[in-house]
């Protein structure tokens, strides 16, 4: 594989406006219920006890997620038809001619990247806006972010520039699928494995 592509997310800049989610939905004309990019509102808190006084000590941050075009793409491994496959550039995509719409990839992916499109009877997912990139444009989500919290590119370059953190709650442990994702964590971000918070908008993600 020549160059592996991935996303970068600066969690410290995200305001949770969901422009990335809407830009993606609009660009790909996704039906109701299918959202290739979603923004989770992650939060939690404890009580800070000072003498007899209990004060709430709370936190909140956002996590935007589409597909990480994982090195260990479990969706492609489990796909019975080989419709889900990893292209030369590392982008994980669905071949509509092969897909049977069994939704097994949906069960396997801990990032909810493959999503069933009832209109086509097939799975669908983020292809990192292959057509836009072909025209020299950024993917719709990256271009839409008003805080410039999203970036994309060859994962090696992203890691050189931004580091290699990806183990941030509510994401799963990166060892599960080896995602091509780099995050600059928010100051209240919780590492995977020490998570105390919860996704507060579960029906949206």
């Amino acid at each position: 594989m020549a160059v592996k592509l991935g996303f970068y997310f600066d969690q410290t800049l995200c305001t949770g406006c969901k422009a990335c989610q809407i830009a993606c939905k609009d660009k790909h004309d996704l039906p109701l219920g299918v959202n290739w990019r979603r923004v989770a509102e992650y939060g939690g808190g404890t009580w800070q006890i000072t003498g007899d006084t209990f004060a709430p000590n709370i936190f909140a941050n956002y996590m935007t997620m589409a597909c990480n075009h994982c090195d260990d793409a479990v969706c492609a491994d489990v796909c019975p038809t080989t419709a889900m496959h990893q292209r030369e550039d590392g982008v994980v995509a669905v071949d509509d001619d092969l897909c049977v719409g069994c939704r097994y990839c949906e069960w396997a992916c801990p990032y909810s990247a493959p999503q069933y499109n009832a209109e086509t009877g097939r799975m669908s997912k983020c292809d990192l806006c292959t057509d836009f990139r072909g025209e020299g444009l950024d993917p719709a989500c990256v271009a839409a972010c008003p805080s410039r919290a999203l970036d994309w590119g060859p994962i090696d370059e992203l890691r050189e520039k931004y580091g290699d953190v990806a183990a941030i709650a509510p994401l799963p442990d990166p060892s599960v699928t080896q995602p091509n994702l780099v995050i600059t964590p928010h100051r209240s971000a919780e590492p995977v494995g020490a998570a105390t918070g919860a996704i507060n908008n579960p029906r949206e993600v």
Binding site: V78, C79, P80, L98, C99, V100, C102, T120, M123
Partner: peptide, 25 residues
């Protein structure tokens, strides 16, 4: 009836070397 595109059903045998679902079928 579980399949979204039953016309492609024959394809589920294509990934026997990796997918337990192919093996099941």
């Amino acid at each position: 009836f579980h399949l979204g595109t039953p016309m492609n059903a024959i394809n589920v045998l294509r990934h026997v070397d990796s997918s337990w679902l192919s093996r099941e079928i």
